[in-house]
């Protein structure tokens, strides 16, 4: 037990470069695998939380843009959504990484973009924005006509109408699908360190360490189930958080009309 505590102190934040420099090389204990893979989860959580949070705002803007009457707003939004939804995230990562490498040669200001914490984050941010925007756009299209007419009847227009009627309804309708998108985003963060972005000094995410252990021990039956356990926990946490928001968004509705969250990740992609 004490030994395991020591491992936790040494490797608990190894993925962020804090603690022991060298990774364990032989005689891997179960504790080491749990601690290091858990340590890598900090990257997955960081990427997921920041991308989903920032993506929420861009997605709202893109959804409104796609629904806009003005060609000059609608077309760019449609293309943005099409490009990021129509191509594999894996290829997007590679392209972005090499793009940033070229930009770095043109201007040194781009050098932070070639490391994962910023470069991959940008890709994930754009990607989740595009997918969420499509969900929000669909919700925007299915807002009951009566709601908008009622807002008009109250003399609302422009910003107040959007802020108090359209936006909350859009979120309410989109929320179950949006939850799935968030879950999928967290899962997609595992691609980062397998797609060009270097894990400097072996600071990688959970899958990076799970793969490290599987390669070293040649036994996939321990690290990957550990990783799976962490991800299932994370998924449950996301469902719980989004469920709370969902209840809040539906609080004015009678009980049986409330939309329930269903666990259906990936199906929307």
């Amino acid at each position: 037990m004490n030994e395991c505590f020591q491992t936790l102190m040494d490797y608990g934040l190894r993925s962020q470069g804090i603690g022991e420099k060298l990774l364990p090389r032989s005689d891997f204990t179960l504790c080491q695998q749990f601690v290091l893979i858990g340590s890598g989860m900090t990257w997955n959580i960081y990427f997921g939380v920041v991308a989903v949070f920032a993506g929420f705002f861009l997605a709202t803007a893109l959804a409104l843009g796609k629904g806009s009457r003005h060609l000059w707003i609608r077309k760019p939004s449609e293309w943005f959504i099409f490009v990021f939804r129509g191509s594999p995230l894996f290829v997007q990562f590679f392209f972005a990484y090499f793009l940033f490498l070229s930009l770095k040669q043109a201007h040194p200001a781009f050098s932070p973009f070639t490391s994962a914490w910023l470069g991959a984050l940008v890709v994930l941010f754009f990607n989740t924005s595009a997918y969420s925007a499509e969900i929000f756009y669909g919700a925007l299209q299915s807002i009951p006509k009566g709601d908008i007419e009622a807002a008009d009847a109250y003399g609302m227009s422009g910003w107040p109408r959007f802020r108090r009627v359209i936006w909350p309804t859009m979120l309410r309708l989109a929320w179950p699908s949006y939850t799935n998108e968030a879950i999928f985003m967290f899962q997609s963060t595992t691609l980062v360190f397998f797609s060009g972005f270097p894990a400097t000094q072996q600071r990688g995410d959970a899958l990076y360490y799970a793969n490290y252990f599987a390669d070293k021990t040649f036994n996939p039956f321990i690290p990957y189930p550990i990783l799976a356990m962490y991800f299932i926990l994370l998924t449950l946490l996301v469902i719980w958080g989004y469920g709370a928001v969902n209840r809040y968004l539906n609080r004015h509705l009678p009980q049986e009309r409330r939309s329930r969250l269903t666990f259906r990740p990936n199906v929307i992609r």
Binding site: Q187, S188, T190, L191, F194, L207, A210, N211, A214, F218, P220, F221, Y224, L227, A228, F231, I232, T235, F263, P265, N266
Partner: peptide
């Protein structure tokens, strides 16, 4: 159904290729 969908797909890719081979 639940397990494969609750865990990142590339984790399964990396896992199954070794696991099947072994």
């Amino acid at each position: 159904i639940a397990l494969v969908r609750g865990v990142p797909d590339i984790a399964f890719f990396l896992f199954f290729v070794i696991a099947l081979d072994q």
